[in-house]
C-alpha cells in the first residue's frame, strides 16, 4: 500500500511538538466547539494513518464517549436542572453536558495519543531524547530489542518442556506453575547473557572518557522548518483567542458557554482547526499529487 503520510517522515522534533500541542490544547480548551474540532481532526488523522482498520477504534471510542457522558451525573450531583432522580441522587442536565464534553475530551486525547504512538516510533523517540538522557535511551533501545527475543526464547523453553511431558496445560495451578518454571529458565539464561553483553560493550569503548557524539539519521529540512513555523503561527493565534476568553465554558451551576461569534473567537477556532489539520492536509495533498502525477505518465 502506498504510504502518503508526509508528516511521519518529518523530523521527530516537529512530530513531538505537534502532538504535545494537540494533546495539551485538547485538555486545556474545554469548550464544546473546540473539543468537537479536536475530535474530528484527530479522527481524520487516525483514519488517514490506519485507513480501513480504524473502524473498531472509532466504535470503541464512541461507546466510551456515551458511557462517560451518561455516568458523569451519577458522580457529580451539582447543577440547577434536575432531569430525574436516580438512587436518591439528582441526575442533572448540567452534569450531563459536562460529561458529554469530558467524553469528547477523552476520545480526542485518546485519538491524538494513538496517532502519536503510530507516528512517534521508538527510534524517533530515542533519537530525539538521546542527547539529553543517553543512558535511559540506550536502555530503552536494548529493552525493545530484547523483548521479542525473550518472547521467542520463552516459547522455545515451553516447547522443550512439552517434549519431556510438561506441557503447562491442565488446571489453573499447573498452568501457573508451568509459567513460573519457564520464567525461571528464561531469567537464568537472560542474566548470564547480560554480563557478556556488558563486558563486550565496555571493551568496545562504552563509558570511555571523552565527549560522546550521537549519530543522527533525521535532518531538519526546509519542509520541517516550514511546518514548525505553521505550527507556531496557528498555535499563537489559538492561544491569543483563548486568552481573550473565547474558549471559556462553565457548567456548574448553570451551563454558560462562550459563543463562537465575532472576530477573535472565529479566528481562534479556525486557527485551532488549521493547526490540528496540518498532518491530514499534507497526507491528502501527497495522495492527490501522487495520483495526478501518475495519470500523466
Amino acid at each position: 500500500m502506498q504510504d502518503y503520510d508526509v508528516f511521519s517522515r518529518c523530523h521527530p522534533a516537529v512530530n513531538f511538538l505537534f502532538f504535545a500541542a494537540a494533546i495539551v490544547l485538547t485538555v486545556v480548551l474545554f469548550h464544546p466547539a473546540y473539543l468537537l474540532v479536536s475530535l474530528l481532526c484527530g479522527g481524520a488523522y487516525y483514519a488517514v494513518l490506519r485507513r480501513a482498520r480504524c473502524g473498531r477504534t472509532f466504535g470503541f471510542l464512541l461507546i466510551a464517549m456515551v458511557l462517560v457522558a451518561a455516568v458523569n451525573p451519577l458522580f457529580n450531583t451539582l447543577g440547577e436542572t434536575t432531569l430525574f432522580t436516580l438512587f436518591g441522587r439528582p441526575y442533572t442536565w448540567q452534569a450531563l453536558c459536562y460529561g458529554g464534553c469530558a467524553g469528547m475530551m477523552f476520545a480526542a486525547v485518546s485519538l491524538w495519543f494513538l496517532c502519536g504512538g503510530i507516528v512517534m516510533t521508538s527510534d524517533k523517540f530515542t533519537s530525539l531524547f538521546g542527547a539529553v538522557i543517553p543512558a535511559i535511551s540506550l536502555v530503552l533501545v536494548m529493552v525493545l530489542r530484547l523483548i521479542p527475543g525473550y518472547w521467542r526464547k520463552g516459547k522455545q523453553i515451553a516447547g522443550a518442556r512439552k517434549c519431556i511431558g510438561r506441557s503447562g496445560a491442565g488446571t489453573r495451578k499447573e498452568k501457573i506453575q508451568g509459567g513460573m518454571d519457564v520464567l525461571m529458565a528464561l531469567s537464568g539464561w537472560a542474566l548470564e547473557g547480560s554480563v557478556v553483553t556488558a563486558d563486550s560493550m565496555r571493551c568496545r569503548g562504552y563509558g570511555a572518557p571523552g565527549k560522546r557524539t550521537s549519530f543522527q539519521i533525521y535532518r531538519f529540512t526546509g519542509r520541517d522548518r516550514f511546518i514548525t513555523a505553521l505550527i507556531a503561527v496557528t498555535l499563537a493565534a489559538a492561544i491569543y483567542a483563548a486568552a481573550g476568553g473565547s474558549a471559556r465554558a462553565a457548567f456548574i451551576p448553570a451551563v454558560s458557554v462562550a459563543e463562537v461569534a465575532g472576530f477573535r473567537p472565529i479566528l481562534g477556532l479556525a486557527a485551532y482547526a488549521a493547526l490540528l489539520l496540518i498532518p491530514t492536509f499534507y497526507s491528502i495533498r501527497e495522495a492527490i499529487l501522487w495520483h495526478s502525477l501518475r495519470s500523466k505518465i
Binding site: A135, V143, L146, L183, S187, A190, A198, D199, R202
Partner: peptide, 25 residues
C-alpha cells in the same frame, strides 16, 4: 556503567516478556 545498564535493560525486558510465559492464564 555498562553492566548496570545491561542488567537494568535485561530485567525490564524480562518484566515485559514475562507475560508470554503466562499466555495460557
Amino acid at each position: 556503567q555498562a553492566r548496570e545498564l545491561v542488567i537494568l535493560a535485561v530485567l525490564c525486558a524480562l518484566a515485559v516478556a514475562s507475560r508470554a510465559a503466562f499466555a495460557a492464564v
